[in-house]
Computed example of a mutant assay.
Amino acid sequence: MTRTQQALCWALALIALALSVSTGLVDRQAAEPLFFAGPVLAYLSITDRVTCCNPFRGARA
């Protein structure tokens, strides 16, 4: 997947969450932490800055 496709998937997920809160399917208090954590998780999963296996560039796992 390209970065653009990954970003679109994250955007779709956050929009779906917002719509589900506005229609009452999900409680606002339950969804509020996801509105803060969602963009952070999206950034970390899309960028190449940090990975689970190799946190330092050039280092070997």
Rank of each mutant, 00 (worst) to 15 (best):
M1E: 04
T2F: 02
T2E: 09
R3T: 09
T4W: 07
Q6P: 00
L8F: 09
L8N: 12
C9S: 12
W10R: 03
L12T: 03
L12I: 02
L12S: 03
A13G: 09
A13W: 02
L14P: 01
A16S: 14
A16F: 02
L17G: 00
L19G: 15
L19P: 06
S20Q: 09
S20W: 08
S22R: 13
T23Q: 12
G24D: 02
G24M: 09
L25W: 13
V26W: 06
D27Y: 05
D27A: 15
R28A: 15
Q29E: 11
A30T: 15
A31W: 02
A31K: 00
A31V: 03
E32F: 12
E32P: 02
P33K: 01
P33A: 01
P33F: 05
P33I: 02
P33R: 07
L34E: 02
F35N: 04
F35R: 01
F36W: 11
F36D: 04
A37Y: 07
P39K: 06
V40R: 06
V40M: 15
L41W: 08
L41F: 15
L41Y: 10
L41S: 15
L41A: 15
Y43Q: 05
Y43D: 08
L44T: 06
T47C: 12
R49L: 11
R49V: 09
V50L: 15
T51R: 14
T51F: 04
C52T: 12
C52Y: 11
C53R: 05
N54S: 14
N54F: 06
G58Q: 07
A59Y: 10
R60D: 09
A61Y: 08
A61T: 14
